[in-house]
Design a protein around this nucleic acid. Sequence first.
DNA 1: GGTCAATTGAC
DNA 2: TCAATTGAC
Length: 477
Amino acid sequence: MNTPVIVWLRHDLRLRDNPALFYAAQQGPVIPVFIDDTSVADEWSPGAASRCWLHHSLDSLNQQLSGGLKLFRGEPLDVLSKLIEQTGARAVFWNRCYTPQAVRRDSLIKRALKNAAIEVHSYNGSLLWEPWEVSKGDGTPYKVFTPFFRNGCLNAPLPDAPLPSPQLRLFSAQDSTDQISLQQLRLLPDHPWYERISEHWEISEDAAWKRLQQFTAERLQHYQKGRDFPSMEATSTLSPYLQWGQISPRQIWYYSQQQANKPGLEDALDTFLKELGWREFSYYQLYHNPGMTRENLNQRFNHFPWRNDADRCRDWQQGRTGFPVIDAGMRELWQTGYMHNRVRMLVGSFLVKNQLQHWLHGARWFWDTLVDADLASNSASWQWVAGCGTDAAPYFRIFNPVTQGQKFDPDGTYVRRYLPELKKLPSRYIHTPWEAPEAVLKAAGIVMGTTYPNPILDLKETRSQALQAFAHLKEHS
DNA sequence: GGTCAATTGAC
DNA sequence: TCAATTGAC
């Protein structure tokens, strides 16, 4: 068969365990395509950090394909139709996307191509279980994680084993006139901020594998306890690779189980696999609640008296709240495009419950600055922390950044890493610099209010305000 | 409709 | 201890 087939790559920028690529390669010479989609340009088009990651991902994948990756910008149906016309391709293969816009787009394109007598083949390349295949006995979707994962997922048929790299034959054709270069895609922002992020990460399919191997070999044994301590680097940090598909959840699922098949690692492995379960649960929720990227899942929260205060949001964004663990987290985010999981919960709770800002302000900032920005996880997690989500943290659970800092960063290693201005402050005061005696501050080279801000709010007071607002909400709905 | 259980806390 | 909600089955 020498009629070419098109593989439309999206969030699956890898060769291994790529069902669309694998099965397309069995059908004929392949034309691999990536399209910068202008048809879904809404507030959740990839943010700056995500586009930066995408730039490097495409560069790396193009090298793996010996320069054969074709880049376009435009409406996918137009691009694909033209390419079919130019090359005589008879089929289009892709791996499914699950965000509401993408689901709608793909089903329209599928219908249009089929009407034009073009075959369309779609596969699951980014989830362990399809969201429509997991439901309760009565057919309605789960709302609570534990039964979703234990009964819904783990009792369902196991995910397929990962596929090997395909035997690829690339279709050799003249470059089409619509094709553009990686530079012309302009995925890197003008702001030099991205350079630091690029330096911080090795962005390729091989790098994702190295990370998984290193994680299972060195980090997994300490995962159970270590994952809560932001200074410890005990987590996998695979999330950004998962987002653009340099690695698949199936590869992680099977490889980690195979490597951790030793006594003593059972609990750590279960906890780790459960985190993949949370990713599944987020996609599951988004699939069944497409409005949750904007609207409170719990509608009672529609009447919550959020404050709309750009200045407060700016303090938070820039890491100038005066609470070291919060500020360190926000600076980690800015410098690396990443933030440790526990710290994400702390900064989320602070913005929503102490500053009383709407969770969407946080979701939008994370969306723009996280290299692992994932619409499902981001929406579900912000709703969780705000208390309006499915299976959410109870409203009265308000994290205290001081006690949390003392508990999970007792010697201040994490704080010092991202707040060098507090580097010389003794551990005793590292989470409460405003309590340090004048002499201690002086010795550490700190001038409160100048080199480091005083706390912008009173934890006790704001906590009780939030509790009051929530209680009011409860009475009047 | 009764029973059981519930990621990641604070005072 | 809080203090009682919500979902799953």
